[in-house]
Design a protein around this nucleic acid. Structure first.
Lengths: 213, 213
DNA sequence: CTCATTTATGAGAGTTTCCTCATTTTTGTT
DNA sequence: AACAAAAATGAGGAAACTCTCATAAATGAG
């Protein structure tokens, strides 16, 4: 079982010294507040009072909101990529890897709606975050191309197109039903040059094998 | 040509009464300010001083920033759709229509970088704007499906996926080079079920016939 | 338990923004 | 030119926010 649901950072620091526990409280609180009213609109006081702390406490830990966002986004990215990559080392078929990764990302968004919302918005405030997060995707794309399954050039626009398809799913259906997930996976495969029929079969196959249709 | 050489609203109200001209000044100023620092971060004073007006003048015209954004977005949407649809009535091939519309939208974004930026961000603040703007796209998609060229269901997620691909292009390459435009058009066609080869030929054909390769 | 160290607190100074409205300026008609 | 209507102005009260810092409370090692 991955770390429990609602307090990503608190669970990581249980039993540690007070300093780390309070920092985690701020980080978890920031996830909720950023997801709820957006990064721009969130005030320091929103975050501290949601964590049941005083306004001044924030400044014992961070210089400003942007620094906090960096930590939040890095933490979410780490957890999300860990969940996606779990038990995928033996899978060596590019299209299956891309499909499973996309579906798992969106399933995670179903279980933790705030995480992906915050993470995707962070990408635009912290551009350098993207390159680190996205390296696994690049590898899987290259694998699929090498295997002759994909017809595409791995460039930065293609990466952004895939992220955009994921963002579209999140905006349109935050509850992230399986229909939305499947349509998004098929869209990614189509974008990579697979035919509609093959894309659909690929998605059905991955759902049957890994995600319980 | 630097941004905002053209004044969308001012040009529409030249020679009218003062009230309309000042309103247009506010609207044009809002485009620049929203595009420059974002809707959320823009203050009323930012907008009025960019228009060389006093802060209080704003409130003679609008109750708040959101009302202003509505007018701005509606005006941009009207102008952009008019440009896209120009001389397209005789074109009755679904894929060509979709390709040409996408390319024209992105060419407009090249000429007026601020417009599409503001318009796309508005979609998320004003959801009901989208349905009106997007009806032409729906028709072209249905045409392509009826002609057997597209393999897709026209649902709201598909529409959002297409808009997301456009947004990805805008974020990644605001200068909107032809390479970006072509890759985006091909991505849209792939998403609609066309093969990579056919998509590329389709895009090249439209560029040759309508956009001067 | 003691007490030095670490952490939390929240009042308050300084900014920024929103929005109002009494007043001034401009406009356009007679 | 005179004048009423329309439009523009910007000072200022209220509210929200940021960040500091002197003080209080909590922590944990001996």
């Amino acid at each position: 079982m991955p770390p429990s649901v609602h307090h990503l950072f608190r669970d990581q620091t249980a039993g540690m010294k007070k300093r780390e526990r309070t920092r985690s409280a701020l980080l978890d609180s920031a996830i909720s507040v950023f997801a709820g009213k957006g990064y721009e609109a969130a005030s320091i006081t929103d975050i501290t009072s949601h964590a049941a702390l005083a306004n001044g406490t924030f400044y014992n830990y961070y210089q400003g909101k942007d620094e906090l966002l960096r930590d939040v986004a890095a933490g979410i990215a780490e957890e999300v990529t860990a969940r996606i990559n779990e038990d995928m080392t033996e899978l060596d078929h590019g299209p299956s890897r891309v499909t499973l990764a996309t579906a798992r990302l969106l399933r995670t968004a179903r279980a933790e709606p705030e995480w992906l919302k915050v993470l995707l918005n962070s990408v635009f405030v912290i551009p350098e975050l993207q390159s680190a997060t996205v390296q696994y995707l690049r590898q899987d794309l290259e694998m699929g191309i090498g295997q002759g399954h994909f017809t595409a050039n791995v460039n930065v626009l293609l990466i952004n197109q895939i992220l955009s398809l994921i963002r579209a799913a999140l905006l349109l259906d935050p509850a992230m039903g399986d229909a939305t997930i499947k349509q998004t996976c098929e869209a990614v495969l189509r974008l990579l040059g697979q035919s509609p029929v093959k894309s659909q079969k690929q998605v059905d196959d991955v759902f049957r094998r890994f995600l319980g249709d």
